[in-house]
C-alpha cells in the first residue's frame, strides 16, 4: 500500500465513519431517553436512500404507501382511545395529522413529477416521507409498553426491524439503487485527491452534529429530552411527558437515519435490507461509548469506518468479520473498566 492508496482508503473510512457517527448518536439518544435499543434505525437509512432514488427515477416511492398505512393504523388506535375516553374533540386533529398530511404529500407527488425538481427539494421530500414513520412506529410498537424491561423493549425492537425489512422488500422490491453523486467536484491537495462527495458528507454530518448540540443545549425540547434521559421519573414530575420525549427522540433518530441514507446512497448501492448492517456498525461505535457518551460514540464510529476501509483493502472478504469482531475487544475493555451497579427496577 502506498501513501496515495492509504489516503484514499482513509477518505473512504472517514466518509463512512461520519455516517456511522450520526447513527451512533441517534442510537445513544434513543437508548438514553426511552431505553429502546433502536435496531430498526438501519431500516430508516435504507428507506431514506431508496425513497430518494425512487424520486430521482421519477417513480412513486413505496414509502408513501407505508406512510399512509401506518398513519391510518395510528389514527385507528388514537380514535379508539379517544372514543373510550370520550374526547371526541381530538378526532379531527388525529385524522389531520396521521392521514391528512400523508395524503397531502401523496397529492404533491402526483401533481409535480419529482424527477424534475432540484436535488435539495428531492432530499426534503424524501425526508418528509420517511421521518414521520419514526414517531408512528413509536406510537404503535413502543408507547403501549414504554415501562417494560430493556429486554422486552429490545425484543420488540427486533420484531419491528424484521417487519420493516419485510415491508421494505414489499414496497421497494429486491433490486438495489444508487443515486448519482451530489457533486463531482474534487480538490487536489499535494498528491492526494480529495473528493467533493467526502467533503460534503463530512460537512453535512458535522453540521447536523452541531445542530443537535444546540438543540440539546439551547432549546426547551432538547433540555426536556436530556432531563428524561437523566431521570425519567424526575422529568415526569416536572411535567415532561414521557410519550412526548419518546416520540421526539424517535423523530430525531429517524431524521438522522433517513438523512444518513441520503448521504450514503451515492457511495454504495442500497438494497431494502442493507440498512441492518449499516445501523449495526453505528452500534459498534455506540457500544464503544458505552451507549452513554456522545463524543466517544462518535469517535468509535469513525474508528469503525476506518477499520472497515482498511480491512476492505487487506482482506476484503473478511471486512464484515473484522468490523464485527472488533466489538469483542471493545466489550472486553468495557467489562474490565466499568463496575456495573444494578439499577432499581
Amino acid at each position: 500500500m502506498d501513501l496515495q492508496i492509504a489516503l484514499l482508503l482513509g477518505q473512504d473510512g472517514i466518509t463512512n465513519g461520519a455516517i456511522y457517527a450520526l447513527l451512533a448518536l441517534a442510537l445513544v439518544l434513543v437508548f438514553a431517553v426511552t431505553r429502546v435499543i433502536f435496531i430498526p434505525q438501519g431500516e430508516f437509512v435504507a428507506y431514506g436512500a431508496l425513497t430518494l432514488a425512487s424520486l430521482q427515477a421519477g417513480k412513486l416511492p413505496g414509502t408513501l404507501w407505508l406512510l399512509l398505512g401506518l398513519g391510518a393504523a395510528v389514527a385507528l388506535v388514537e380514535i379508539a382511545l379517544a372514543l373510550r375516553t370520550r374526547q371526541m374533540r381530538r378526532i379531527p386533529s388525529i385524522l389531520l395529522l396521521n392521514c391528512g398530511i400523508p395524503l397531502l404529500l401523496g397529492g404533491i407527488l402526483f401533481a409535480i413529477p419529482p424527477a424534475t425538481l432540484p436535488l435539495a427539494v428531492q432530499v426534503v421530500l424524501a425526508l418528509m416521507l420517511v421521518v414521520p414513520l419514526g414517531p408512528m412506529v413509536y406510537r404503535l410498537a413502543f408507547q403501549p409498553i414504554a415501562e417494560a424491561s430493556v429486554l422486552v423493549l429490545l425484543i420488540v425492537s427486533i420484531a419491528v426491524h424484521v417487519t420493516l425489512i419485510g415491508l421494505g422488500l414489499l414496497f421497494f422490491g429486491a433490486e438495489g439503487s444508487r443515486t448519482p453523486a451530489f457533486t463531482d467536484m474534487s480538490f487536489e491537495i499535494g498528491d492526494a485527491l480529495l473528493q467533493g462527495q467526502t467533503v460534503l458528507v463530512v460537512v453535512a454530518s458535522a453540521v447536523l452534529i452541531v445542530a443537535l448540540y444546540f438543540f440539546f443545549e439551547r432549546t426547551i425540547y432538547g433540555k426536556a429530552l436530556r432531563a428524561t434521559a437523566m431521570n425519567r421519573t424526575g422529568a415526569r414530575l416536572m411535567g415532561i411527558s414521557a410519550t412526548m420525549a419518546g416520540k421526539l427522540s424517535f423523530t430525531l433518530a429517524t431524521l438522522i437515519g433517513a438523512f444518513s441514507g441520503v448521504l450514503i446512497s451515492p457511495i454504495t448501492t442500497i438494497y431494502y435490507d442493507s440498512g441492518f448492517l449499516i445501523g449495526l456498525k453505528g452500534f459498534v461505535g455506540a457500544i464503544v461509548g458505552g451507549l452513554a457518551s456522545y463524543p466517544v460514540a462518535a469517535a468509535g464510529a469513525v474508528l469503525v469506518g476506518l477499520l472497515e476501509a482498511y480491512s476492505s483493502f487487506w482482506a476484503s472478504a473478511y471486512k464484515e468479520v473484522i468490523v464485527f469482531t472488533m466489538i469483542i475487544p471493545v466489550l472486553l475493555w468495557r467489562s474490565l473498566t466499568t463496575r456495573h451497579v444494578e439499577e432499581e427496577e
Binding site: 425484543i155 420488540v156 420484531a159 419491528v160 426491524h161 424484521v162 417487519t163 420493516l164 419485510g166
Partner: peptide, 11 residues
C-alpha cells in the same frame, strides 16, 4: 414476506 407477519405477531 412471512417476516412481516412474524414481526407483527411478536409485537
Amino acid at each position: 414476506f412471512e417476516v412481516i407477519v412474524f414481526g407483527l405477531l411478536m409485537i
